[in-house]
Design a binder for these strands. Sequence first.
DNA 1: TATACTTAGTTACATAAAGTAAGTTAATTT
DNA 2: AAATTAACTTACTTTATGTAACTAAGTATA
Lengths: 109, 109
Amino acid sequence: MADQTICPKFESALNIINKRWTGLIIFQLLEGAQRFSTIEATIGISGRVLSERLKDLEKQGIVKRHVYDETPVRIEYDLTEKGMALKPVLESIQEWADGWMEIEKQSFV
Amino acid sequence: MADQTICPKFESALNIINKRWTGLIIFQLLEGAQRFSTIEATIGISGRVLSERLKDLEKQGIVKRHVYDETPVRIEYDLTEKGMALKPVLESIQEWADGWMEIEKQSFV
DNA sequence: TATACTTAGTTACATAAAGTAAGTTAATTT
DNA sequence: AAATTAACTTACTTTATGTAACTAAGTATA
């Protein structure tokens, strides 16, 4: 009636990584610290969900929020060590994508 | 106003892999071919969504559905070559989980 | 000085995705 | 004949995401 065999750490990891947008957010931050609006524009996520995700990721210790008290204030997000440790995951996805994904031509409606 | 820098193959790959349950389904099938009800019970997904996911994954060429015409009929799902190629992805997630995930004690409500 | 713009969000509401539970079909066991 | 199992599907509910407008504080523009 319930799961048995699956490693709970693995399952929790999937619960984080497998959430919509999380992969792309982390991928972006592997490039270096970025501002809210930059992430928003680059990956095409809505502000509402980006805000939600960044808070989750911060709570998970994957992302860190930095407030630079300049005028105007600058806020940047970057990866913690735990977050950086996800690099091989993203790389393996990239490799799989290179080897196996077809680019579908988008038909513009 | 829109994304620029992200590799479209990578993005499509993430759109598949990052869907809820997909990771766990593939992880299960890495163990070998399995029946619908086994996957359902093992990972705790609802039948409705499992049915949906398996169809998607089949369409993507990641999973293959096999009908064994015994009585009663037996249906099994397994990974294609493309699906098997996701093994390193799941392994890298497992490694990250081992290194960085804390097990939260579940408080039963 | 007033108006408009930018950043980093939040809020309210609409739509899409996932969960729940019951139903279906065909065959099998009791 | 009634109950059970497998592999789904259907109808309905709850949750997640998208959209758009709003806020606050500062900056630039007319």
